[in-house]
């Protein structure tokens, strides 16, 4: 391929900026991974290669509990958010454009626009009242809160796919004796599957990663992995949290890769 004079790659400084950006993005992560194999007690002082902190983290029951709690919340929240987002996307794309449509999109995507800390405080107030009234203080509050802020992440890819979908396909299904439910089941949903999977995946990762809202909403003993790590930072810090973060990184990378291949195979 011949490079024209106007090719962006031929501009002065292109190489430097690219390198700098990549370093800024990946150097800290690389450092984290390297230091998770640090044999010393210190976070940043190198004391020889060792996997002792992985073993320590693995045997730490608080870490185990937090990890399982994180996964349970993320699965529930991503699942519920995807269902809600799918219904919202169907409802918002199956109408002729009208005044106030943008407002409705904004309302659905509220969690993307309101600062998270505001929502966190608001949920703290509301949930603490509900806790008093009902006496219930289980994981439900966290699942509910996570579902709410996961909805836009599931909604956006599904809506994008629906907007580019040929509506005559649904009309053709109806013409060929499919009821509305059968049309959804045999035509709409199969065509949406990649977007639904992508939406679920995004929601899952967003839930897994959340700190602010979780910190405000959780009751005692309901630490998720991120809030547990945050809590550890306030006490004596060991490379254990490096190890946990590295496992976290590996886990989400594997998830993303799996979903990517599932999606590619379907198409």
């Amino acid at each position: 391929m011949s490079r024209s004079r106007f090719d962006i790659r031929a501009q002065p400084g292109f190489g430097f900026i690219t390198l700098f950006t990549f370093f800024a993005l990946y150097l800290p992560i690389a450092a984290l991974v390297v230091y998770s194999f640090n044999g010393a007690e210190s976070l940043s002082q190198w004391g020889g290669f060792s996997s002792r902190w992985f073993v320590a983290a693995w045997q730490n029951s608080a870490v185990q509990d937090a990890a399982i709690r994180s996964l349970v919340i993320a699965l529930w929240a991503a699942g519920l958010a995807t269902v809600a987002a799918l219904m919202a996307a169907l409802a918002t794309t199956r109408t002729a454009p009208y005044r106030g449509q943008t407002l409705k999109y904004a309302l659905i995507n509220q969690p993307l626009m309101v600062p998270e800390i505001v929502t966190a405080v608001a949920l703290l107030i509301v949930f603490s009242r509900i806790k008093v009234w009902t006496g219930y203080s289980g994981l439900g509050y966290l699942v509910l809160a996570h579902t709410a802020f996961c909805i836009p992440f599931a909604y956006l890819p599904i809506r994008a796919r629906l907007e580019s979908m040929d509506l005559t396909l649904e009309r053709a299904a109806a013409d060929l004796y499919a009821t509305r439910w059968k049309t959804f089941r045999h035509v709409t949903l199969p065509l949406l599957r990649p977007a639904v999977i992508a939406g679920f995946m995004l929601a899952f990762v967003i839930s897994l990663d959340d700190v602010v809202i979780t910190e405000f909403v959780k009751s005692g003993g309901q630490d998720t992995l991120p809030t547990y790590m945050l809590g550890q930072l306030r006490r004596e810090t060991t490379p254990e949290i490096n190890a946990i973060a590295t496992v976290f990184l590996a886990l989400s990378t594997v998830l993303v890769v799996i979903f990517f291949f599932i999606n590619r195979k379907k198409q």
Partner: peptide, 29 residues
């Protein structure tokens, strides 16, 4: 409703179901 009428349509853009094979498309109705 369209699905209650013994009438079928050939659409201008064909509207074939892209996720189904030729035979599955024909079998749909």
């Amino acid at each position: 409703l369209p699905n209650q009428r013994p009438v079928n349509t050939v659409f201008q853009n064909y509207a074939l179901f892209p996720h189904l094979s030729v035979a599955e498309n024909i079998a749909f109705g």
